[in-house]
Design a protein around this nucleic acid. Structure first.
Lengths: 111, 111
DNA sequence: GTATAATACCTAGTGACTCTAAGTATATGT
DNA sequence: ACATATACTTAGAGTCACTAGGTATTATAC
Protein backbone atom coordinates (compact mmCIF):
# COMPACT_ATOMS: atom_id res chain seq x y z
CA UNK A 1 0.00 0.00 0.00
CA UNK A 2 2.93 2.30 0.46
CA UNK A 3 2.70 2.94 -3.24
CA UNK A 4 4.79 6.08 -3.37
CA UNK A 5 7.59 4.51 -1.41
CA UNK A 6 7.70 1.53 -3.68
CA UNK A 7 7.59 3.54 -6.86
CA UNK A 8 10.55 5.54 -5.64
CA UNK A 9 12.41 2.40 -4.74
CA UNK A 10 12.80 1.38 -8.34
CA UNK A 11 14.02 4.72 -9.55
CA UNK A 12 16.29 6.13 -6.89
CA UNK A 13 19.47 4.78 -8.43
CA UNK A 14 18.62 6.25 -11.81
CA UNK A 15 17.73 9.58 -10.26
CA UNK A 16 21.05 9.80 -8.45
CA UNK A 17 23.02 8.81 -11.52
CA UNK A 18 21.15 11.40 -13.55
CA UNK A 19 22.27 14.18 -11.26
CA UNK A 20 25.82 12.99 -10.77
CA UNK A 21 26.44 12.58 -14.48
CA UNK A 22 25.83 16.30 -14.91
CA UNK A 23 28.47 17.20 -12.35
CA UNK A 24 30.08 15.72 -9.23
CA UNK A 25 27.81 16.17 -6.25
CA UNK A 26 27.70 15.50 -2.53
CA UNK A 27 24.86 13.90 -0.62
CA UNK A 28 23.28 16.83 1.07
CA UNK A 29 23.21 18.78 -2.16
CA UNK A 30 21.60 15.89 -4.00
CA UNK A 31 18.75 15.82 -1.51
CA UNK A 32 18.11 19.54 -2.02
CA UNK A 33 18.53 19.33 -5.75
CA UNK A 34 16.04 16.48 -6.14
CA UNK A 35 13.56 18.34 -4.00
CA UNK A 36 13.79 21.56 -5.94
CA UNK A 37 13.83 19.99 -9.40
CA UNK A 38 10.80 17.85 -8.61
CA UNK A 39 9.04 20.83 -7.09
CA UNK A 40 8.92 19.22 -3.68
CA UNK A 41 7.90 15.72 -4.70
CA UNK A 42 11.16 14.01 -3.82
CA UNK A 43 12.26 14.57 -0.25
CA UNK A 44 14.80 11.88 0.42
CA UNK A 45 15.82 11.15 3.96
CA UNK A 46 19.46 10.70 4.86
CA UNK A 47 18.73 7.09 5.74
CA UNK A 48 17.67 6.60 2.15
CA UNK A 49 20.25 8.63 0.34
CA UNK A 50 23.54 7.81 1.99
CA UNK A 51 23.11 4.04 1.85
CA UNK A 52 22.10 4.42 -1.79
CA UNK A 53 25.27 6.37 -2.57
CA UNK A 54 27.38 3.79 -0.76
CA UNK A 55 25.67 1.05 -2.71
CA UNK A 56 26.36 2.78 -6.01
CA UNK A 57 29.96 3.37 -5.06
CA UNK A 58 30.41 -0.24 -4.03
CA UNK A 59 29.05 -1.31 -7.42
CA UNK A 60 31.59 0.94 -9.10
CA UNK A 61 29.03 3.24 -10.72
CA UNK A 62 30.17 6.35 -8.90
CA UNK A 63 33.29 7.31 -7.01
CA UNK A 64 33.49 9.38 -3.85
CA UNK A 65 36.24 11.80 -2.87
CA UNK A 66 36.43 13.80 0.34
CA UNK A 67 36.99 17.48 -0.03
CA UNK A 68 37.66 20.00 2.71
CA UNK A 69 36.25 23.47 2.31
CA UNK A 70 38.14 26.59 3.37
CA UNK A 71 35.81 26.75 6.35
CA UNK A 72 36.99 23.32 7.47
CA UNK A 73 33.73 21.60 6.55
CA UNK A 74 33.99 18.26 4.87
CA UNK A 75 32.06 17.07 1.89
CA UNK A 76 32.15 13.84 -0.03
CA UNK A 77 31.82 14.50 -3.72
CA UNK A 78 30.66 11.68 -5.93
CA UNK A 79 31.52 11.55 -9.60
CA UNK A 80 30.52 9.25 -12.40
CA UNK A 81 32.56 6.31 -13.61
CA UNK A 82 32.46 4.83 -17.10
CA UNK A 83 30.56 1.91 -15.68
CA UNK A 84 28.09 4.34 -14.16
CA UNK A 85 27.46 6.02 -17.49
CA UNK A 86 26.76 2.70 -19.13
CA UNK A 87 24.44 1.77 -16.30
CA UNK A 88 22.58 5.05 -16.60
CA UNK A 89 21.94 4.49 -20.29
CA UNK A 90 20.69 1.02 -19.46
CA UNK A 91 18.45 2.33 -16.69
CA UNK A 92 16.93 4.88 -19.00
CA UNK A 93 16.01 2.15 -21.43
CA UNK A 94 14.54 0.02 -18.67
CA UNK A 95 12.57 2.96 -17.42
CA UNK A 96 11.10 3.62 -20.85
CA UNK A 97 10.25 -0.06 -21.30
CA UNK A 98 8.51 -0.07 -17.97
CA UNK A 99 6.64 3.11 -18.82
CA UNK A 100 5.33 1.74 -22.06
CA UNK A 101 4.30 -1.56 -20.43
CA UNK A 102 2.38 0.22 -17.70
CA UNK A 103 0.71 2.57 -20.12
CA UNK A 104 -0.66 -0.44 -21.97
CA UNK A 105 -2.52 -1.42 -18.80
CA UNK A 106 -3.19 1.80 -16.97
CA UNK A 107 -4.90 3.80 -19.63
CA UNK A 108 -5.96 7.31 -18.71
CA UNK A 109 -9.54 6.15 -18.96
CA UNK A 110 -12.11 8.26 -17.18
CA UNK A 111 -13.05 6.92 -13.75
CA UNK B 1 20.00 -3.00 -8.67
CA UNK B 2 17.00 -5.17 -9.40
CA UNK B 3 15.48 -2.11 -10.97
CA UNK B 4 12.72 -3.81 -12.88
CA UNK B 5 11.53 -5.72 -9.86
CA UNK B 6 11.36 -2.60 -7.77
CA UNK B 7 9.59 -0.57 -10.39
CA UNK B 8 6.95 -3.26 -10.62
CA UNK B 9 6.61 -3.35 -6.88
CA UNK B 10 5.10 0.09 -6.74
CA UNK B 11 2.59 -0.53 -9.45
CA UNK B 12 1.31 -4.04 -9.06
CA UNK B 13 -1.68 -3.06 -6.96
CA UNK B 14 -2.74 -0.46 -9.50
CA UNK B 15 -2.31 -2.90 -12.34
CA UNK B 16 -4.49 -5.49 -10.66
CA UNK B 17 -7.18 -2.98 -9.81
CA UNK B 18 -7.14 -1.73 -13.38
CA UNK B 19 -7.96 -5.16 -14.73
CA UNK B 20 -10.50 -6.11 -12.09
CA UNK B 21 -12.44 -2.89 -12.46
CA UNK B 22 -13.15 -3.84 -16.07
CA UNK B 23 -14.64 -7.17 -15.07
CA UNK B 24 -14.33 -9.74 -12.29
CA UNK B 25 -11.26 -11.88 -12.82
CA UNK B 26 -9.42 -14.80 -11.28
CA UNK B 27 -5.73 -15.03 -10.57
CA UNK B 28 -4.52 -17.25 -13.34
CA UNK B 29 -6.35 -15.20 -15.91
CA UNK B 30 -4.88 -11.98 -14.56
CA UNK B 31 -1.37 -13.31 -15.01
CA UNK B 32 -2.09 -14.20 -18.64
CA UNK B 33 -3.94 -10.97 -19.29
CA UNK B 34 -1.12 -8.80 -17.95
CA UNK B 35 1.37 -10.70 -20.03
CA UNK B 36 -0.57 -10.37 -23.25
CA UNK B 37 -1.56 -6.73 -22.78
CA UNK B 38 1.99 -5.70 -21.98
CA UNK B 39 3.28 -7.74 -24.91
CA UNK B 40 5.27 -10.02 -22.64
CA UNK B 41 6.72 -7.44 -20.29
CA UNK B 42 4.76 -8.45 -17.22
CA UNK B 43 5.13 -12.10 -16.31
CA UNK B 44 3.96 -12.31 -12.72
CA UNK B 45 4.75 -15.40 -10.74
CA UNK B 46 2.10 -17.01 -8.57
CA UNK B 47 4.11 -16.13 -5.50
CA UNK B 48 3.72 -12.50 -6.46
CA UNK B 49 0.16 -12.45 -7.64
CA UNK B 50 -1.78 -14.48 -5.13
CA UNK B 51 -0.38 -12.76 -2.05
CA UNK B 52 -1.12 -9.44 -3.75
CA UNK B 53 -4.73 -10.44 -4.36
CA UNK B 54 -5.07 -11.59 -0.75
CA UNK B 55 -3.63 -8.29 0.41
CA UNK B 56 -6.07 -6.30 -1.70
CA UNK B 57 -8.96 -8.40 -0.47
CA UNK B 58 -7.89 -7.98 3.13
CA UNK B 59 -7.83 -4.22 2.59
CA UNK B 60 -11.35 -4.37 1.24
CA UNK B 61 -10.46 -3.15 -2.25
CA UNK B 62 -11.58 -6.30 -4.00
CA UNK B 63 -13.77 -9.22 -3.03
CA UNK B 64 -13.24 -12.84 -3.89
CA UNK B 65 -15.90 -15.43 -4.59
CA UNK B 66 -15.34 -19.08 -5.38
CA UNK B 67 -17.02 -20.37 -8.45
CA UNK B 68 -17.22 -23.96 -9.60
CA UNK B 69 -17.17 -24.63 -13.31
CA UNK B 70 -19.28 -27.32 -14.91
CA UNK B 71 -16.08 -29.32 -15.23
CA UNK B 72 -15.64 -29.26 -11.46
CA UNK B 73 -12.69 -26.87 -11.58
CA UNK B 74 -12.65 -24.12 -9.01
CA UNK B 75 -11.85 -20.53 -9.62
CA UNK B 76 -11.78 -17.58 -7.28
CA UNK B 77 -13.21 -14.53 -9.01
CA UNK B 78 -12.30 -11.14 -7.62
CA UNK B 79 -14.53 -8.17 -8.14
CA UNK B 80 -14.16 -4.51 -7.32
CA UNK B 81 -15.58 -2.86 -4.23
CA UNK B 82 -16.52 0.80 -3.91
CA UNK B 83 -13.45 1.27 -1.78
CA UNK B 84 -11.40 -0.33 -4.52
CA UNK B 85 -12.70 2.06 -7.12
CA UNK B 86 -11.81 5.03 -4.97
CA UNK B 87 -8.38 3.58 -4.36
CA UNK B 88 -7.83 3.07 -8.07
CA UNK B 89 -8.62 6.69 -8.81
CA UNK B 90 -6.21 7.70 -6.09
CA UNK B 91 -3.50 5.37 -7.41
CA UNK B 92 -3.86 6.79 -10.87
CA UNK B 93 -3.28 10.28 -9.52
CA UNK B 94 -0.26 9.13 -7.54
CA UNK B 95 1.11 7.40 -10.58
CA UNK B 96 0.80 10.54 -12.69
CA UNK B 97 2.39 12.66 -9.96
CA UNK B 98 5.27 10.25 -9.78
CA UNK B 99 5.63 10.24 -13.54
CA UNK B 100 5.80 13.98 -13.75
CA UNK B 101 8.30 14.19 -10.88
CA UNK B 102 10.60 11.64 -12.48
CA UNK B 103 10.36 13.29 -15.86
CA UNK B 104 11.63 16.49 -14.30
CA UNK B 105 14.83 14.67 -13.36
CA UNK B 106 15.24 11.98 -15.99
CA UNK B 107 15.05 14.00 -19.12
CA UNK B 108 15.31 12.12 -22.38
CA UNK B 109 18.66 13.80 -22.92
CA UNK B 110 20.99 12.10 -25.32
CA UNK B 111 23.61 9.94 -23.62
C1' DG C 1 27.25 33.91 25.25
C1' DT C 2 24.04 30.55 24.12
C1' DA C 3 20.25 28.35 22.01
C1' DT C 4 18.56 27.07 17.43
C1' DA C 5 18.78 25.97 12.85
C1' DA C 6 21.20 24.68 8.82
C1' DT C 7 24.85 22.11 6.77
C1' DA C 8 26.96 17.47 6.27
C1' DC C 9 27.72 12.84 7.16
C1' DC C 10 26.85 7.90 9.19
C1' DT C 11 24.18 3.40 10.43
C1' DA C 12 21.42 -0.28 13.15
C1' DG C 13 16.86 -1.92 13.00
C1' DT C 14 12.09 -2.34 11.13
C1' DG C 15 8.77 -3.35 7.84
C1' DA C 16 7.03 -4.16 3.31
C1' DC C 17 6.86 -6.97 -0.54
C1' DT C 18 8.63 -9.66 -4.90
C1' DC C 19 10.23 -13.87 -6.11
C1' DT C 20 11.85 -18.77 -5.51
C1' DA C 21 10.38 -23.05 -4.77
C1' DA C 22 7.72 -26.08 -3.08
C1' DG C 23 2.98 -28.28 -2.61
C1' DT C 24 -2.19 -29.62 -3.81
C1' DA C 25 -5.69 -30.72 -7.26
C1' DT C 26 -8.29 -31.22 -11.70
C1' DA C 27 -8.62 -31.52 -16.85
C1' DT C 28 -6.90 -32.56 -21.36
C1' DG C 29 -4.11 -34.38 -24.90
C1' DT C 30 -0.99 -38.03 -26.54
C1' DA D 1 0.23 -43.86 -18.25
C1' DC D 2 2.34 -39.42 -18.59
C1' DA D 3 2.95 -34.67 -19.68
C1' DT D 4 1.07 -30.28 -19.88
C1' DA D 5 -2.08 -26.68 -18.79
C1' DT D 6 -5.15 -24.80 -15.56
C1' DA D 7 -5.73 -22.98 -10.80
C1' DC D 8 -4.71 -21.86 -6.10
C1' DT D 9 -1.57 -21.76 -1.75
C1' DT D 10 2.40 -20.44 1.24
C1' DA D 11 7.09 -20.67 3.76
C1' DG D 12 11.48 -18.54 3.24
C1' DA D 13 15.09 -15.48 1.24
C1' DG D 14 16.63 -11.23 -0.23
C1' DT D 15 16.23 -6.29 -1.10
C1' DC D 16 15.83 -1.74 0.24
C1' DA D 17 13.29 2.80 1.91
C1' DC D 18 12.60 4.76 6.02
C1' DT D 19 12.81 5.60 11.24
C1' DA D 20 15.47 7.18 14.60
C1' DG D 21 19.29 7.72 16.51
C1' DG D 22 24.25 9.51 16.42
C1' DT D 23 28.61 12.93 15.33
C1' DA D 24 30.45 17.49 14.02
C1' DT D 25 30.74 22.28 12.16
C1' DT D 26 28.94 26.89 10.99
C1' DA D 27 25.65 30.69 11.05
C1' DT D 28 21.81 33.17 12.92
C1' DA D 29 18.88 34.86 16.52
C1' DC D 30 17.93 36.24 21.18
Amino acid sequence: MAQRRELIKGSIDSLLLCLIVEQPMYGYRIIKELESRSQGYFKFKEGTLYPALHRLEKSGLIQGRWQVLSTGQQRKYYSMTAKGKASLADSRTKWLDFLSAVSMIIRPSEA
